[in-house]
């Protein structure tokens, strides 16, 4: 079967009466990285939440591996192989790092130790701090815990809402490197990013949203090269 692993197809909807998304389409292919960028208030996070089922869409469809999942709750989508890392409050602060990962695997009844080892291989610092309360870690390390927790379900799609918000540029580069590594293991990645330029550099596919509509959609490199995109959204 070809086609995107996950697609939010022509989504229209919002939180209340007024629509925020208008005929907005977001898709990600297997093992690729798709990035949603755009100015503030463009509906980036809203688009992501719509794909994850945290907001009702009036029109359009969300399909995972070709199956219509538009009506499923977020929890049910997790069971179907989607993982979501919220922008804030994305860890269990008083639980240890290891317990955070265990909770990520809560739905799994099989042995998840291999997955935990993979997460520790991906983020070696977490192995050293496995017995420490996650709330005591630095911002960058907490993000690693959050991503690690999401990976514990062995998802086919990992969704990240501004993973680099509030971390230093060095940590950001490091985190992007790790995200590329995750994508190489065959997990598709969909993320919303404020740091548009850096994010598009690692993106296979970029979506520029403006006021809840698709404005530009192309490969990351093509968008970076597009003079209009550069002028309007990347500061020249």
């Amino acid at each position: 079967m070809s086609g995107p692993v996950l697609i939010g197809d022509a989504m229209t909807g919002g939180y209340g009466a007024a629509d925020i998304l208008h005929d907005c389409t977001i898709a990600v292919e297997k093992g690729q990285i798709a990035v949603i960028v755009g100015p503030n208030g463009a509906g980036k996070s809203t688009a992501m939440k719509a794909v994850f089922g945290m907001l009702n869409i009036r029109e359009g469809q969300v399909r995972l591996n070709g199956r219509d999942i538009t009506k499923l709750t977020p929890q049910a989508r997790v069971a179907q192989g989607m993982a979501f890392v919220p922008q804030t409050s994305n860890i269990f602060p008083s639980l240890t790092v290891e317990e955070n990962l265990e909770m990520g695997a809560f739905l799994r009844r099989d042995d998840f130790r291999t997955t935990m080892e993979q997460v520790f291989d991906l983020f070696p610092i977490l192995r050293d701090k496995r017995r420490q309360a996650a709330g005591e870690l630095s911002g960058g390390q907490r993000q690693q815990v959050a991503v690690g927790r999401a990976l514990m379900t062995q998802p086919s799609v990992l969704m990240l809402d501004e993973p680099t918000a509030g971390v230093s540029p060095i940590v950001m580069d490091e985190l992007f490197d790790r995200i590329i590594e995750v994508a190489r293991t065959g997990i598709s990645i969909l993320m919303v990013e404020q740091n548009a330029r850096q994010a598009l550099e690692i993106a296979d596919k970029g979506y520029v949203l403006v006021q809840g509509r698709n404005r530009f959609t192309d490969t990351g490199q093509a968008l970076l090269a597009d003079p209009e995109v550069r002028r309007s959204f990347l500061g020249g």
């Binding site: 409050s89 008083s94 909770m103």
Partner: peptide, 12 residues
């Protein structure tokens, strides 16, 4: 107790 929303997302 720590984070109700994330607990729900984790399938608890």
């Amino acid at each position: 107790s720590d984070n109700e929303d994330l607990a729900l997302l984790s399938g608890i």
